[in-house]
Each structure stands twice: as C-alpha cells, then as structure tokens.
Design a protein around this nucleic acid. Structure first.
Lengths: 201, 201, 201, 201
DNA sequence: GATGAATGAGTGTTCATTCAT
DNA sequence: GATGAATGAACACTCATTCAT
C-alpha cells in the first residue's frame, strides 16, 4: 500500500466510525504516520479524500454488479427444493463475501449510513446499495429459479420481498451495528441459514 | 417552549442530521437566537445537551413500553383472521404514531444511528430501540392473539420474526432514509398495510 | 482606545508598511497584546479589518470635504499678491494638517498606494484622494481668489494645474516615501513654502 | 525565453500587482508551468528571484543613463522656441519609451512603489528612479538648451523643477495607477504634449 | 436569565524549502 | 533540467468554555 492508499484506508476506518466531520486531518495523518502537509500532496483537500472513497466504492460495486449473471440459480440443477436452497446459499455467500463482510464495502456502508442524512449524493448511493441493488439481485436469481421450476413464477415477487426483508433486517442488526466482529458475522450467517432453511420448506 | 427546551429541540434537529461532533455550540445558539455564553446557563457543557436528550428519550420510551398491554390483541374480539388483521393494524398504528413518525423519537433514532458506531452506551440503546423492544412488543401482541386462537401458538415465533423483519426493513427504507417527508411516511404506511393484508391470508 | 480601535490602529500601521496580505493576524494580535481568537470577537475576518479601515477613512474625508468652503481665500482680504500668498499658505496648512501629515490619513494613503494595483475599489478611492479631490479643493480656493481679483480668472486653471503638480510631486517625494519622519515633513513644508513664494511673484 | 527568464517575467508581473510576500512560489510555478521543486534549480530561494529582478533593473537603467548625452538638446539646432519644444518632445519620448512605457521598467517601478515602505534598499532605488535620475536628466538637457541660448541660464533650475513636477505627477496619475492600458498611456502622452506646448510659450 | 469579552486548543490549509531520483 | 514526495512552520479561522457583569 502506498501513501495515498494508506490515507484512504485510515480515513475510511475513521470516517465510518465517527463520521466525516468529526475526523480531523491530524487524526488521519497521525495514524498513517505522515505530516499533515504531506497529505495535501496526495489530496486536494479533506473533501477530496471522501470523494475518492466514494469513487472507489462506485467502481467496486459496478464491478460486482456486472457479474450478477454468474451467480448460480443455473440450468444444470434439477427442479425441486434442494436446488432452491443450494442456490440461495450460494447467492447469499456471494452477498456476504463481496458486499457485507468485505471490509471496504462494510465500512463504506457505515460511512454512508452516517452521512446520508445531510448529503443527498450519498443518500442516493446508500439507498441503491442497501435497497435497490440487493432487491434486483435477489429478483434476478429467484426468477431464474422459478424459470427452472423451483416454484411458481407468480410467487417470485412475494418470495423476493420476504427474502429481502429478512436479509436487510439481519444486515442492520448484525453487520451495521457496533464493530464488525467475527461473532457478529457468525450470528448473521447462522440466522441467514436458518431462514434459507425455512424458505426451502 | 422555554429556552432550555428550545436548545434541546434545535440541538436534536442538528445532531440527527449532521452528527453530534459536527454541530457546534455556535450553530445551535445561532438558530435558537441566544449568545453562546447563555447556553452555559442552561447546560453544563455540550455533552450535557446530548445526555439530556438521551435521558429524555429513555423516559419517553419507558412511558410507552409501560403501556404495551393496552395495545389491543384483546379478548373481546372473536377468533379468526379479521381480528388478526385489525389487531396488527392497531398495533402498527401505535408503533408509527408513538415511535417512528413521532418527530422526537424519529430524530433520536437517527442520532443514535449516527453515533452508535463509536459510543457503546448509545449503541445499546439503539439496538434496544430498533430490535429488542419492537420484537418484544410484536411477540407480546401476537402471543395474545394466538391465545385467542387467531393462529396456532407454535407459529407465533416464526410469524413475529417475519413481521419484525418486514417492519424493520421498511423503517430503514422509508423512515430512516433522508428527510422524513409526508411522502415517505405515506409510502411506508402503504407498504405496511399491504404486508399486514398479506399476513391475514 | 478600546480593543477594537487598538486592533484597527495596529493593523493600519502594519498594512501600510508591508501590505495587507503580508501582515498576519498573529502579527497584529502580538502587537495589540491579545490572543488570535479574541480578534475574531471584534472582527468577522481579516478582510473585515481592512473594510473597517476603509469605511473609517471614507467617513473621515467626507467630513473634511464638507468643510472646504471654510478654507480661506475670503472676502475680507484686499486684492493683491499678499492675500494670494496668505491664502495659499492657509490652504496648504489645511491640506497638510488634515490630510497628509495626519497619521491616519497618511497611513491610509500608503495602504491604498500598495493595494490599488490589485483592488479596483481601493484604486478608485486612491485616485480620488490623491488626484481628484485635491484638484477640486485647489480649484475651489483659486477661483475664489480670482473672483477677488488676485489674478485674471482665465489663468485660474493653468495655475491650479501647476500648483497641483507641485503639491502632488512633493507629496510622493516627501510624504509617501519611506517613514514619515519630522525631517521629511519639514523638507516638504519648506519646499511648499518656496513654491508658494514663487507663485506670488 | 528560457525557463529562468520565464520565471522572472511571471514573478515580476505578480510581484508588481500583489506585492512580493503575497505571491507564492506555487503561484509563480503554476503560471510558468513547472513544479515548485524545479524553481529551486534556477533560483536559490524566493528572495533570490527578487534580487535578480532588482539586479536586472539596475543594469537596465545604468545602460540607459550612460546614454543621456545622446538625448538631443544638441548644438546643430538654432536658438529659439522651436528647438526647445522639439528637444523636450524628443527627451520625453525617450523617457516614455525607455522608462515609463517599457513593461519591465514600469512593472519594476510598481514593485518598488509597493516594497519601498519596508525595504530601505528598494526605497533608495525607488527614490533614485523616480526623483533623482529624472531630475538630473531634465537638468542635463535643459542646461544644454540654455547654453544654446534657448532661455537664460539662470532660469534653467526653475524650469526644470516645474517640468519635473509635471512629469512626476502625470506619471503617478496615469502610469502608476491601475493597469497600464493603452488608454492611460495615450492620456499621459496627451497631457505631456499639452504641457510641453505650454512650456514653449 | 443573559451577555460581552476573552482564551487555549484545535480546525483545514498553504508556505518556502529539501532531497533523492 | 525537472520532478515526486516529504516536511516544519505558519496561515486564517473555529472550537468549547469561562467569568465578571
């Protein structure tokens, strides 16, 4: 990690815990181990650090979303509940690994959670990340499952809605509540699997 | 409203939008229309404003929780789905009016959402307010409904879990996302009713 | 002198010697004997000090200009060169005492001399103070002298032009060049009187 | 123009408008199109740029002054007013072209005007450039004119004084006041010619 | 109840400068 | 010749807070 990346990393950790305004340039530089003047060689100003983080996050999720279709729910599986369960598990692993457990994403979401109330640009991105995009991803997978005969097509929407509600609630409860510890990740994963099991029945 | 109340009101609005640290004594006093030195007649220091708000909020929800039993789900209703729906509606109206739409509560929740990441005391209160308490309230009501024969008692938990997931997700999506406008409140209420309808079937 | 006046006084001395930008808030406060934060109780920002000085100067010269007619050149004097000389002397004493030797005015002119090159508002005031206003004052007095028969009226303009050129040159040479010492003031006064003597012949 | 010359050129433009201290190395390099570290290849430090400019200016005016005798006022002309006028015109053209209208000289004079109040070295040079040298030049030419019989030798001093006063005043009024535009140069030249005409009578 | 005046510590940011490459 | 990366000191300004009135 070069100096610029280190600054962004430290800044993200601090911003996501205390909020953008409450973190000072001094705080960041102290942690990175550089003088404040050095920071201004790498970033135009404080806002520029935030903007760079957001930019990086946008690129990150754009990259993820462009691979949705690779999430299973795929044709070589036979009809029935088993596939359903298996696909859900895979899909959810994908969500966890790439979105919610991934340190960069998780911290960015926390940052957005804090800043969304007074920053419309961030609010829009926050809504997209936590509500719009996941709903679409779930719908995409479940529709393909329905097409394979896992369940009647007209039930897809209601199932997705229920699934999305669960996942969202658990995300807020375990992954966006206090520090992201291994325990909280396990508690989340456990509840997710219990629910996916429930869906299979 | 006297000066002290005015200060708390203004402070809450600002804290819940920009976070505690990002709001200055100057900001608050400017909006209230007093000099900064005057604020210190009413509050020991900045932290004291936050503490007073939290104290007030604790009293507020304690008052509400001590009246859970008054939420219907009550004996004079007959068995069957109708009662179920009706009770849910009443319960939810209660949640909306007293918790989520109430300006003081809504803003306090936003404030806790922002501050929870670096303040364990607030985090605990936040978790209780958004996860523990509502779950208990729902459980309380649904158990009484089950006791009245609205549905088999052993289904209570799974129903509550599902109900809670929905309510939580909708709360974050509509009531803790951007400004609390009438439109967002309507969108929330609409979705809630749709779901409660779904539960009745 | 209260704190605010002291700040303006010190700031003027420093601005007029080193220019507005080259003087720091620290410099001013150090000399005044207050902390930097105290300055901001009295002035909105650094620019506000400069603006206050300019405002004060405008009021100052407006006060002076409203009393031009009281400068002699008056009716009770007899025709002839003696009056001419006498009046010029009085007029010039007025110019010296009120404008050029007056510490506040002299320093403000120096400040304007420095800042006029990149501040159009100051440039206009500078031109008015050093060229437009003095010319008008001289013209006013000399016209009254001509009316009294001190010299033919049609010569007034050329005399004023010459007189103004001399006074302006001497002002720049002695009063706006280096520190305003008693020696420079004397040298200025001496040359002025020599010239006024020359005008009498 | 090589890089070093470009730096000096840009620095002079900026120094003469905003003053030495108010201009940053960043400002200069930004305009020149080089990195700040590059500047230190060409100059020891910021002060060195100023010193180089002053040095260059000294050489420049030394060059000019060593050719005073070439300014007409010369022997092959006949006695009479015509020669007087002609010589004055030529002399003045020389002053304008070489001193006052010349961009390098004009900007240097502005720079000295700003810096003279707190830099004795510059003050001395400023006084020499605007008062001592021109007076000597005028005296040199007018003495030669008197020797040719253009006017009585004992009048030379008073004429020179008057001439110098006019030229100095006009210089400050038109050439050292705001930006040096073509209009200001024309207004200056027009007034100069009017005065020279007056002198001829 | 409220304010005018003050302060020490801290804010984000710019300064001229250095030095290895 | 020129640059990338760094720095200590200074910059204008804001912070929460105090205290006499």
């Amino acid at each position: 990690m070069n100096t610029k990346e280190k600054i962004m990393d430290v800044a993200l950790h601090m911003f996501s815990e205390r909020g953008y305004e409450a973190v000072s340039i001094r705080d960041i530089c102290g942690e990175v181990g550089i003088k404040e003047s050095t920071l201004y060689y790498h970033f135009k100003n404080k806002k520029d650090i935030l903007d760079s983080l957001i930019e990086k996050f946008r690129n990150h999720i754009d990259g993820l979303l462009s691979h949705i279709d690779e999430i299973p729910g795929d044709g070589q599986q036979k009809k029935g509940k088993k596939n359903d369960i298996a696909s859900s598990k895979i899909m959810d692993t994908y969500m966890m690994d790439s979105y919610l457990f991934d340190p960069f994403c998780n911290l960015m979401i926390r940052l957005m959670m804090i800043e969304q109330f007074h920053n419309e640009e961030i609010r829009v991105l926050y809504e997209k990340t936590l509500f719009t995009d996941p709903y679409e991803i779930y719908m995409n997978v479940f529709k393909r499952l329905a097409a394979q005969g896992a369940f009647p097509e007209e039930q897809a929407e209601i199932i997705v809605r229920q699934y999305h509600a669960y996942m969202t609630m658990l995300t807020y409860k375990y992954l966006l509540n206090g520090e992201l510890t291994e325990e909280r990740k396990k508690a989340y994963a456990k509840e997710v699997h219990k629910i996916i099991g429930g869906f299979g029945s």
